[in-house]
Computed example of a mutant assay.
Amino acid sequence: MSYSTFFPVAFPALAIAHFLALLSPGQDFFLIVAHSIRHRLQGSRFICLGVALGNGLYIGVAIFGWTIIRDNQAIYLVVEVVGGLWLLWLGYALLRSKKRNTDLDFEQLEVPSVLKQLVLGFNSAILNPKNALFYMSLMTVILGNEVTLTQQVSCGMWMFFAVLVWDLFVASMIAQPKVQRPLSNYIHVVERAAGLVLFFFGLSLFIGYLH
């Protein structure tokens, strides 16, 4: 089977557009940064997987043409409001971060369980309905109507692994000891900054409803 069996002609454009979107820091990015700073890769790698799984679910929605979220305003509103509240709570929790001992021993910090990491990452991605609209738009506008189901699935798998690999790369870079040491006195500052950004994301949603 040839390349065109699995990937359409527009695949390079799709891959570039998707990667450029990954470069734009969003709520998932700041969540991963905050946990990588505090818990290194051990405490953030499954957050990355959870984020990828959340994106994967929305990719599946886009591929198989489920328009229930996009067309049903009530469901979209519920997901959006719950997502906004989730970001407010998560941001508030990070804003309460306290300064630790300057001789921080990372091995003594309690690392979040695999399940907790997965839930954090998955919720961050799935409670952002704009992800669904992004993937639907991406698949529809760039790939067009001539794309086959096989090509759609192949593109979807590429985007899933692109999210996972990119997030793991970000987490692993921040988790490096040479990065951790200079940051050891400023972990609470970074976490509070990440919390402020996440809180702003959530707050901006509700401010938008007032206009």
Rank of each mutant, 00 (worst) to 15 (best):
C48G: 04
H39N: 05
H18F: 04
N145S: 13
S204A: 11
I142Q: 04
T150V: 13
G60L: 04
T102R: 15
L22A: 01
Q152P: 03
S97G: 00
Q42W: 12
Q73W: 15
L20P: 01
A21Y: 06
F161R: 00
L94G: 11
L149R: 12
F200E: 15
F169S: 09
W166V: 00
E191T: 01
H188W: 07
L198C: 07
A193M: 14
V81K: 07
I174N: 00
A194L: 06
S97M: 03
L133P: 03
L90Q: 11
W89K: 12
V61E: 08
V189D: 10
A93T: 15
V153A: 06
V170P: 03
L104C: 09
L94S: 14
Q151K: 05
E191Q: 09
L49S: 05
I47N: 01
G83R: 00
M1P: 13
L57C: 11
F200C: 13
L77H: 15
L133D: 09
N55G: 14
L41P: 04
Y209G: 07
L57W: 13
Q151C: 07
W86C: 06
F6R: 11
D167A: 02
F206I: 03
G195P: 00
L164S: 00
E146L: 08
G60I: 03
V111E: 08
F200V: 14
N131E: 09
I142F: 01
L85G: 08
A125N: 02
P25G: 04
I126K: 07
L183T: 03
L127M: 05
L183W: 05
S36K: 02
H188R: 03
A162P: 05
W66G: 14
Q42Y: 12
L23F: 07
W166M: 00
T150F: 12
Y186V: 08
L118F: 05
S137Y: 01
K178L: 11
V79W: 15
M1N: 14
R38K: 05
L77A: 14
G156M: 00
T5Y: 15
D103T: 11
L115M: 12
W89E: 08
L41V: 07
L143W: 03
L196F: 12
S4K: 10
N131K: 07
L133I: 09
C155V: 02
M139S: 06
I174K: 00
H18W: 02
W86Q: 04
